[in-house]
C-alpha cells in the first residue's frame, strides 16, 4: 500500500483513503458543442496511458475529499509530486533518456 502526499492535508496518508481518477490536465472546452468528432474523441476517449512519468488525478476520497493532481512514474510506482487542481503542470527534471526508454 502506497503512501500518498495529499496537498490539502499536507501529509502522507495511506493509499486506502484515495481513489485514482484518470489522466490529469485534460481541459473540458467551454465551447464543447463546437468540437469536431475527432476533437471530442481526443477529449473524452483518448488517453496517453504511458509507461513512465504520467500526470494523473487522484481524489482523497476518504480524507479531505479533494481532487488533486499527481505526477507518478508508472514503472517504479513512485509519486514524484502532488499538487492542487488549478496549479500549473510542474516541470519535472527527468532525464530524457530514461523517459524515452520507459516510454518505448
Amino acid at each position: 500500500m502506497l503512501l500518498i502526499h495529499c496537498p490539502h492535508c499536507n501529509e502522507e496518508r495511506p493509499e486506502l483513503e484515495f481513489s485514482h481518477a484518470g489522466e490529469a490536465h485534460i481541459v473540458r472546452s467551454t465551447q464543447l458543442t463546437e468540437l469536431s468528432d475527432e476533437e471530442f474523441a481526443h477529449f473524452f476517449f483518448y488517453r496517453e496511458n504511458r509507461k513512465g512519468v504520467t500526470f494523473e488525478r487522484w481524489r482523497h476520497t476518504h480524507g479531505c475529499a479533494r481532487f488533486f493532481n499527481a505526477a507518478r512514474d508508472t514503472v517504479s510506482d513512485k509519486f514524484l509530486i502532488t499538487y492542487k487542481i488549478g496549479e500549473p503542470k510542474p516541470k519535472l527534471k527527468i532525464s530524457t533518456n530514461q523517459n524515452k526508454k520507459a516510454a518505448s
Binding site: S19, A21, R59, T61, A65, R66, F67, I85
Partner: peptide, 9 residues
Amino acid sequence: NHMEDYLQT
C-alpha cells in the same frame, strides 16, 4: 463523486 469531480475540477 461525479458531481464533486465536475464541481472541483
